[in-house]
Simulated assay, not measured.
Amino acid sequence: MKNLLFALLTLPVGCNSPAATSADASSSSLLPVQAVSQRTTPPAPKAAMAYDFSRPAATYAMPSELAELSGIALAGSTHITGIEDETGNLYEYNLTTRKVDRVIPFGSSGDYEDVARVGADWFIMRSDGKLFRYSATGTQEYETGLSFANETEGLTYDAASKTLLVACKGEPGAGLSFGQRAIYRLHPETFKAEAKPAYVLDVEAIRGSTAGADAAAEKSGKKGKKKGSGKGFSPSAVAVHPVTGHVFVLSAKQNGIVELDQNGQLLAAQPLPADLFPQAEGLAFTPSGDLYVATEAGKSATQASIHLFRARGR
């Protein structure tokens, strides 16, 4: 089974750019695009993240209507807004009262995967590559040039470049192999995906790094229950650290998280404890760098949850 998985992950697939219109939209090169590859030596096991994902500072149990919680974004210091992958609603969750204050319909039913806030507007990504923008004037729809084949699951706002980033769970496009995963930058005016990915994830490099993390944990006697252990990587969420500018990418299927530097180089990869993360689906940073990670209820849990993690030493 392991040999079969390795063969599938490394099988080259001829993929085109997201769409022909994507290249046209990016021809003006208004933004620098980093086309990078992680085909480098995986970081040593000591390359750990600043967060201990086995020890949340706080945990928030979600109500039943958010059992399929698929994405989160901060809405000020007291609220988190979430979406779930069946109905076109935004759910404003109050971190103080631990209740949903308001449900805001933005669209019809659909497979919505992630949400990002830009100013007073909300952007929602659907799995077929369509982007929705909800504002005081209503909801607008945009074709990003990405498609259902790309399986667009992660969405975040990159404040430094003032653009949205989209992480693809499926085909990476841009001529990359299926052993890689792509994160695209959207044009700030047209919301079309740039022709070249902003960041490229190499599955084998991630596997090697996560294997090192597992070995280090075993050596120290910390054998906390893990699921997947990085034997593949299918992005389910993406977020940019507000202080370092590093890019964090979550994977629900393999239950892991990776950290890239601003140039897209792989810094660290860690498996997540299965008891805390039945199906990890959402990421959101506070301005100071605290990290919220959301998980669906999954098959083994009765409720979805959002966990808060503070950087080590804080």
Rank of each mutant, 00 (worst) to 15 (best):
Y134C: 06
G88L: 10
T96K: 14
T137M: 07
I72E: 10
G71A: 10
K99Y: 11
A61C: 14
T21L: 13
R117Y: 03
A35R: 01
G138A: 03
T59E: 08
W122P: 06
Y60L: 00
D85Q: 10
A23M: 03
A73L: 02
E143V: 13
A73G: 10
Y51R: 07
S77R: 13
A57F: 06
S127W: 06
R55L: 13
L131D: 00
S109I: 14
S135K: 00
E84D: 05
D111C: 05
T96W: 05
A120G: 12
L74Y: 00
P32L: 08
T87S: 15
R133C: 05
T41V: 15
Y112E: 03
S64Y: 08
A67F: 12
A67H: 11
S109Y: 14
Y60E: 05
A120K: 09
D114C: 06
V103H: 04
I83D: 01
E65D: 11
R98S: 09
A57P: 10
P105W: 13
T96F: 02
T152F: 00
T96C: 02
G107S: 15
E92G: 07
S64W: 08
E143S: 14
T87G: 14
N89M: 11
A120L: 06
S108H: 15
T81Q: 05
I72M: 08
Y51D: 10
L90K: 04
A58I: 02
R126Q: 04
E151R: 07
S77W: 10
P32C: 02
V36F: 12
S37F: 12
L146A: 01
A50M: 02
T97M: 04
M125E: 01
A48K: 12
Q34E: 12
L69K: 05
L146G: 00
S26K: 00
S29R: 14
S64I: 07
T81I: 09
T144F: 02
R126I: 01
E65A: 07
Y142K: 02
G76K: 06
E143P: 11
Y142C: 10
T59F: 04
W122K: 10
